[in-house]
Amino acid sequence: MLEAQNLSKTYSGTPALHPLSLKIEPGEVYCLLGANGAGKTTTINLFLNFIEPTSGTALVNGLDVVQQPLESKRRLAYIPEQVMLYRNLTGLENLEYFTALGSTETFSKGQLLAFLDEAGLPAGAAEKRVSTYSKGMRQKVGIAIASAKGAKALLLDEPTSGLDPKASNEFSALLKRLSDGGAAILMATHDLFRAKETGTRVGIMKHGRMMAELRTEEFGHADLERVYLEHMHD
């Protein structure tokens, strides 16, 4: 479960995020929409305790991320827009490292390879250096890291940007599986189509403010685009 309580962030007087209250239950996929600079990454970084909130609290499974940074991160998985890995190591070595840091469980090489395969990394790439990977391949390693962790809360910051349509589709399927498994998912995205497909709720942000929240089952693709564009005007 992810919860924001009056969470806000101000950078030297300029608000990047106005007080935001938000609750994402297990099994929900919450899609954050909004123009560049709307405050999506800021929200996610607050949940990661990468930046200090100006006010309010971010909770992961009820744990305050500022008070209990390590405990809350044990329950979190994060896929940024650019999954950055150790370039000189193989995808497998990267997965092994991040998994060893994040989970108490130790996986065999076979299990780790299975995670990579499941995330859609081409066979044979796992043991090549990451410096030879395309962006999409790195995203897939990121997905494998997140799914190996078996986290109860996922923070995704434009995770599919740069993925080919097939990979993007597979990613959506994977998200579905994780959310069916009881994960609470917060995903920032510019992809209205994906948001409608995989999201259970969408929030439209603008200038750090939550402008509208919708349930995806209540409207069609066209409606979402219309509502979004309406909010972007002024």
Partner: peptide, 14 residues
């Protein structure tokens, strides 16, 4: 600069 810091610190590591 390489972005691995964010990846590492999203794990339970100080």
């Amino acid at each position: 600069e390489d972005g691995t810091l964010a990846m590492t610190l999203s794990q339970p590591v100080r």
